[in-house]
Every structure is written in C-alpha cells, then in structure tokens.
Design a protein around this nucleic acid. Sequence first.
DNA 1: TATTGTTATACTCTATAACTATA
DNA 2: TATAGTTATAGAGTATAACAATA
Lengths: 147, 147
Amino acid sequence: MGTNATATPPTTADLMETVAAVGAAYFQDFAAAAARHGLNSSQAKALKAVREPVPMRALAGRLGCDASNVTGIVDRLESLGLAQREAAAGDRRVKIVGITEQGREVLERIRTDMVRAQEAFDSLDAEQRVALESLCRQVLPLLCATR
Amino acid sequence: MGTNATATPPTTADLMETVAAVGAAYFQDFAAAAARHGLNSSQAKALKAVREPVPMRALAGRLGCDASNVTGIVDRLESLGLAQREAAAGDRRVKIVGITEQGREVLERIRTDMVRAQEAFDSLDAEQRVALESLCRQVLPLLCATR
DNA sequence: TATTGTTATACTCTATAACTATA
DNA sequence: TATAGTTATAGAGTATAACAATA
C-alpha cells in the first residue's frame, strides 16, 4: 500500500489546488473549535503563540497584525484567565504575555475538539505520517521565505 | 531518497501543527497574489468558484458566506470584466454567474504570481508529488465531512 | 406563501494616528 | 529622541433584516 511510482504525477497547479482545499478545510475546523471555547481564530492563534512568554510587540509580529490589535486580543484572553501580562524585568515599558495553566488546558481542548482534523490525521498510518510531515517540512521554508 | 520507514512517526498533534503552518503560509501567498490583481481573497476565491457558471445563492454556499455579500463580490468582479451575470432560463429570479475569458486569464496570472507556492511545489520530484497529492486526497473528505 | 437577489444597517476585525510612560 | 503599549477612530468584510420580483 506504498506510493505508486507509476502514477502520473500531478502538476504544480493541481497540487496547489489540493493543498489549498486541505488548508481551507483545516482552518474552518480550527475556527469552529475555537469558537466553541469562546475564542475567535485570532485569539486562539494568539493563545497558541504565547505558550512561550513573549512581549506584546513581538506577539503582533507573530500574528502578522498591527500592535494596536494585540491589546484587545490579550485583554480577551486575560479576561478569560487564559493568559496574563507581566512586567518585563529590565525595561518597564514592555509587558510579557504568558499562558496560564487554564490556557494550556483550553488549548488542548480546542485541539481535541477539532474532530474532523483528528479523524483525518488519525486515518494515516505511521509511514504516511512520516511522509506527510517530511513533505510539509520541505515545502514550508520555501512558502515562508521573505522575498 | 525515499521515505525513512525507521523515523518515529509524528503524533496527530504534531502533524496538525505542521499542516496548519503550511496552510497559513499558502493562504498568505494566495492573498498577496490576488491583491496584486486588485482582488481581495474573497473575490479571488469567488472567481475560482465561477469557472463553472453558478447561481448567486449557490455561490454563497461555496464561499461559506451570507448571500447578501455575494452581490458586492460579484459586482466587483463584473466591474473588472472578470465575471458576468446572466438570467437563468426557466426561473427569472435566479442569476447565473460565469467567468469571462479575461477572468480566466487573471486567475491564471494569480496562480503564476504565487511565486513562493510555485517554488515550494516545484521543489518536489515526481514521486513526492504523487505522495502529497494522495495523502491530501485521503485526508480531505474526512476534513470536509459535515457533522 | 416561499424563494432569489438586493439593499439598508449594525457588528466585528484590522489599520492608522495620537497619546503615555518609559528608555 | 525613540520605543512599548494603549486609546480613539476610520475602513473593510460580514451578517441580519427588510424589500421587490418571481415562483
């Protein structure tokens, strides 16, 4: 049941179409799971990003949005007890955002709440997992390269 | 240079993380390419969806948005000469949206304008393409399943 | 009476600019 | 003076509700 080397390989355009469909479906599943926990996708993405403490401004960079938005996003997480701001030692201007124990639990629940994604990737056997992970890792740096 | 069967397979959680990163990077590339052609991602997604003519309401379903938004989206495509509305034969309430020749050209240019995605998937050899396409196709129906 | 497409309207998310407090 | 975070504000995208035309 390995890869069929004789199959005609898809064109780059075909591959893009298929990968786009997977990406879109995955994101939908993610957003729905986050919503069930009272978070929109930006807030959930931020919660994921603060698993290691990070200054507000750096968080904006990670989320790819303006720094002014991060205030509201972190406000929401903090009001739910999922993240917390701490003053940075050394520079009293910066605040460092970290995840709380409760935040970690919610993050974990969101992931297990992504039922479709769970089923989809659980359906892959060990060899297929290795293959998919490896292909994604090869493709990822090229996709992220700054031009 | 085939898959390494002895590598420890990633957990489902790891796999989800990696696939999410690929999906996000791909979408960014797509949105940037669309913007270079004067379209936002919704409009570009709609242009892709009307390669086969489709009624306004059905288009809303495909885009996963409310029908009221489709009016503006198609207005934009029509004003750029990329799509056109036609009265449906048989039911004078419905309008069918189709792509124009110019629309097809723009769609093609958007794809070739996704330089990072092009490079990323061009970097895969024939065997890797077959493998990635096949894995995506296995996973996709599970990801899209209505619950 | 139900449905299609449209309009009017409100809400959410994001970006820009101005402000404060530190450096 | 420059920078981190915040606030005020405006813009874009989306959803809800009401409407006209048609079924």
